[in-house]
């Protein structure tokens, strides 16, 4: 499926989502009782070993919720997640933890201020019962070296480190169990621009060294273009387009993707997604529009868009959920 898959695993994807849905029940007002909020809606996506899938979409479209479901931190309301064809719900929490690890956006909140860097990085080893202290210490200092930090920092506390150094520590902690998959939820957006590229390059180097597979969530399309092999676009809990990175940035097909890409050619590219020229504002996720959720903002909306939700269909150029393309292709 992906031209950039690094190894052949007999066609079984490293990570596969099958119609994953996640609902929250939120109170809609003092007397309104609870309403259902579908944060992730019927998402199917498969990620091959070695791929870097960039997941983009506006704030609140469900990216972080999807990542929590993948990490096993939130159960899916419907659908299933598979690792190499095995259902996650059938595996023990610890077994999942060994294969898939998160990297967070804010390196200030992701490290416990009361622990030393060494013990933060060693924690997963303790949790998974590696008893030998000298072995643990050796692995921690090796891992510090891998992420480009001097091993004497093992004694330091997080308060003494810069944001970039902290993010390196978070990466070391995520890698020490040798997972296969990293879920990076906006790993660079809290960092200085100069440090961002260092961290991105580190992630790319590590991908080669550890044969990692990434799901890379970002607001910043320039970052996604730099790092991703494939791009998945999410709108209000649904995937609307999945395409190879180059093809996506040359010719996005979904009207929403087109609007997103237009937004980075505005005079101030650093602002990214929030400046989308989409007319209407992001709809209320408790009360999503009928039919295609994007139709109230879509420049090409047709009567049919307000009534039927388009399915995500696969063709030679990728996957897309839009009546317009389906029609043009005579589907």
């Amino acid at each position: 499926m992906s031209a950039s898959a690094l190894s052949d695993t007999g066609g079984i994807p490293a990570l596969e989502l099958r119609r994953v849905t996640r609902d929250f029940h939120v109170s809609a007002g003092l007397f309104a009782g609870k309403r259902r909020l579908r944060a992730v809606n019927d998402v199917s996506l498969s990620i091959e070993t070695g791929e870097v899938v960039g997941l983009v979409g506006e704030s609140g479209c469900g990216k972080s919720t999807l990542s929590k479901v993948l990490l096993g931190l939130l159960p899916a309301s419907a659908g299933e997640v598979l690792f190499h064809g095995e259902q996650m719900s059938h595996q023990k929490r610890r077994a999942v933890a060994k294969r898939i690890q998160p990297i967070f956006q804010d390196p200030y909140s992701s490290l416990n201020p009361r622990r030393s860097i060494g013990s933060i990085i060693a924690q997963p080893l303790h949790v998974h019962g590696f008893g030998n202290r000298t072995e643990i210490r050796r692995r921690v200092s090796d891992m510090l070296d891998v992420v480009g930090l001097p091993s004497r920092l093992a004694q330091a506390s997080p308060a003494q480190l810069s944001g970039g150094q902290r993010q390196r520590v978070a990466i070391a902690r995520a890698l020490i169990l040798r997972p296969e998959i990293l879920i990076c939820d906006e790993p660079t957006s809290a960092l200085d621009v100069s440090v961002q590229s260092q961290i991105l390059n580190l992630l790319l180097d590590l991908r080669r060294e550890f044969q990692l597979t990434y799901l890379f969530i970002s607001h910043n399309l320039a970052v996604v273009e730099h790092i991703a092999t494939r791009v998945a676009v999410m709108y209000l809990g649904r995937l609307v387009e999945v395409a190879e990175t180059r093809a996506f940035f040359q010719a996005p097909r979904h009207p929403y993707s087109q609007a997103l890409l237009d937004s980075i050619i505005t005079p101030n590219p650093a602002e990214g997604i929030p400046t989308v020229h989409l007319g209407g504002s992001f709809p209320n996720p408790i009360d999503p529009p009928s039919g295609c959720a994007f139709h109230p903002r879509c420049p090409h909306a047709m009567p049919r868009c307000a009534t039927d939700a388009p399915r995500l269909l696969t063709d030679e150029a990728g996957e897309i959920a839009c009546h317009l393309t389906n029609m043009q292709q005579g589907a």
Binding site: L73, R94, P102, S109, S110, N112, R114, V127, H128
Partner: peptide, 27 residues
């Protein structure tokens, strides 16, 4: 608990006891 280091501990497969004793209580 709003901090990501608690989420990270959960993602590592930490038991509830370990999260309380080594992540929450010291803070």
């Amino acid at each position: 608990c709003a901090n990501d280091y608690i989420t990270a501990a959960k993602a590592q497969g930490c038991s509830l006891a370990r999260i309380v004793v080594s992540e929450i209580l010291p803070n």
